[in-house]
Amino acid sequence: MEMKELIVEKLKKNFGEFVQEVTDFRNDLSITIASNKIVDVAKILKEDPELEFVMCKDVTAIDWATRKNRFTVVYHIYSFKNNITLRIKANIAEESPAIESVTSVWPSANWYERETYDMYGIVFKNHPDLRRMYMPEGFQYHPLRKEFPVLGIPGSLPLPGKI
């Protein structure tokens, strides 16, 4: 498809070797970029008059457990103009995982990033209000990490006393 090539071309022109990988599986275009460039990439994608990815649909992360770069942060963005959904990925390391927040570009990323922080413990730098989304304050773990058991850790969440 032409549009897809245009997107890749534009990113490659602007960021060169920071564009690490481009895949097109089942017609879903997915571009991996260096994690330190995420805000710049987001700005270009949103503001370029030919692309106009104005809506951020989703932010999440993947925990690869054994890979060197353990986490991948995944963004799904949408352009009304071209009617195309694009996936942006950024790999980050296991040690104190952190990435720049994209809330300055897409305000809707606010809650998605909070959710990702809650579930994976990935810190989004410069996020306006980085708190847990679902789990109670004071909970010490990040449930979607692979080492966390499905049944939870006994005693980590308090119950009211028995009558």
């Binding site: 449930p143 939870g152 969440l157 006393g161 028995k162 009558i163």
Partner: peptide, 15 residues
């Protein structure tokens, strides 16, 4: 829901 966040039966804290 056999999961970390669901109480496995409310009789743990209610009669």
């Amino acid at each position: 829901y056999r999961s970390y966040s669901v109480v496995q039966g409310i009789d743990q804290f209610l009669p």
